[in-house]
């Protein structure tokens, strides 16, 4: 997994509440069997004026000039500033894949939907929760100065503004550790193979009906 220690970049403000995963990456793009290449379809429905289709070349599509990511001042943005309940809706990991593929390394919002929040960590994308009040302040600062950048320091758990003001944020120790070291979850879990095996043996005694029922031979109905 991609390492995340500290990241400084241009901020793009996504000024609406409850941005859902259908908006982040519409369903027609979920047909891909790959993990990459979703960045050009990020926010497709509000980013382009035409209807997007999977596997399409986006370079000549008509842009919605009003959409934040199409404005020249936000080109190259890698920090997304968002409102409450960002990423609500489906479990599609294509949402963080699209954000990451576009070039975002971190999303700052007052709150996130659970599954989305979780999925971000698996992809080296850091979701940062700051209070509504601070997020509001960042929105105004961002609107006021072109080229506004934020520095997100995971090690110290702070977001640093251009004036040097620091806003601290919470992150679970385990998740922080995995991001800082770029650790693969599966490898980590497999270090506990003995624990899993012994749990399983005990489970088999307690609930034997959960073992062996589902397999191709047993599937007659």
């Amino acid at each position: 997994m991609k390492v995340f220690k500290q990241h400084k970049g241009i901020v793009a403000p996504m000024d609406r509440a409850n941005v859902d995963t259908d908006m982040i990456i519409p369903k027609q793009f979920l047909k891909s069997i790959k993990r990459s290449g979703f960045g050009v379809y990020l926010f497709d429905e509000i980013r382009y004026l035409d209807e997007g289709v999977a596997d399409q070349d986006c370079s000549n599509r008509p842009l919605n000039e009003e959409f934040v990511l199409n404005q020249s001042r936000y080109q190259g943005a890698s920090v997304l500033l968002a409102r409450v309940n960002f990423g609500c809706g489906s479990s599609r990991e294509h949402a963080p894949w699209a954000l990451e593929d576009y070039g975002f390394r971190t999303v700052i919002a007052p709150s996130f939907a659970d599954i989305f929040y979780n999925n971000c960590f698996k992809n080296g994308l850091l979701p940062v929760v700051l209070s509504e009040q601070i997020v509001e302040q960042l929105f105004s600062e961002c609107a006021a100065s072109e080229g506004y950048q934020l520095n997100v320091d995971l090690q110290r758990q702070v977001v640093v503004t251009p004036s040097g003001e620091e806003h601290s944020f919470e992150v679970e120790t385990f998740r922080k550790h995995c991001l800082l070291e770029g650790l693969d979850d599966i490898d980590l879990t497999l270090q506990n193979t003995d624990d899993i095996r012994s749990y399983e043996a005990q489970r088999k005694l307690a609930a034997p009906w959960l073992f062996g029922a589902i397999n191709p031979e047993n599937s007659v109905d």
């Binding site: 990991e93 963080p96 599954i115 979780n118 999925n119 698996k122 992809n123 979850d185 599966i186 879990t189």
Partner: peptide, 12 residues
């Protein structure tokens, strides 16, 4: 769960 977790559950 997300796709990374689908893989995690398959593997572990």
């Amino acid at each position: 769960i997300g796709t990374s977790e689908v893989e995690h559950v398959l593997a572990t």
